[in-house]
Amino acid sequence: MTGGAQIAEMARPRIEAMAEGLSTARWTLTEVAFWLVPVACFFLLSDYLVLGSQILITALFALSLDLVLGYAGVVSLGHAAFFGLGAYTAGLLGRHGWGEPLSGLLLAAAVAALAGWLTSFLVVRGRDLTRLMVTLGIGLLFFEAANKAAFVTGGVDGLSGVTMWKLFGVFRFDLGGKTAYAYSLVVLFVAFVFARRLVASPFGLSLRAVRENATRMPALGASVRSRLVIAYTIGAALAGIAGALLAQTTQFVGLDSLGFQRSAELVVMLVLGGAGRLYGAVIGTALFMIAQDWLSGLNPVYWQFWIGLLLVVIVLFARGGILGVADQAMAAWRRKAEP
């Protein structure tokens, strides 16, 4: 078993994962209720929509990593490379006169996907430790390239002067964050439906099989390499969309969008929520960012301590992140209910 698989393993017992398989194609009531929460927030928490939009965007970013890490078992510490690439693509478009949001998203996805596809050949070659180093290296390369190309990217000062047109020519990106929130929510949902479909498909199942036992797959006549390349490329494209969303809603791109910090924090969020589950990505992100906002509001200096403590507790006592604990609790409750 590889290290990536170990992280995913923390997510759920193996047999359960297999048994679930294709049957997840139907939407359960819990899921519907889950998606009604952000919709309700739009109406009830109108003072918090800017934070909300950034949570949704980061959730999409976490979702993209979940496909790569949680499902395909490829550990990555450089996923921000694609996020930043998408952000700069959308940002540069907006700066140089093309502020149409949707086409910007698509183009950002295409650019990130291309970069993901090209670099995927390097990534899938090795094993976990190699992959860790290669993805880290790719991330640093992109960061330094953007720093050097200050005449295009603005370097450390960041890319400002990004002008966005109204969404559909109607909705302006307002200070209160209404448009940004609704826009991010719809994009996240569409991406989520896609990811959900993908992981329930035969392709998604084969990814999990690769994660569990990569040496056995060729014996079944399935190419590990091509599957990982596809998964990595899709993950990169989704990360690019998330980056583009952030660039469009904040109308600014900082060099930190490519930074190691962003990649590392993302892994933390994913583990927190539960890797290898799509909802884990969303819940982990929301929890991390709300905790960060709340704790740094209480005391701006020591919030990292509490985040760190939370992570240690989760890793020690809650295998599979928050969703893993929830599952175990449900299972225990069912056992009790059955005589």
Binding site: D47, V50, Q54, V156, L175, T250, F252
Partner: peptide, 20 residues
């Protein structure tokens, strides 16, 4: 308001929240 480092989007979010 703590931006936690070079973090333009958090800075912008705080500015929006402080204003609205």
């Amino acid at each position: 308001r703590d931006t936690t480092g070079p973090n333009p989007e958090i800075a912008k979010r705080f500015a929006q929240e402080l204003v609205t």
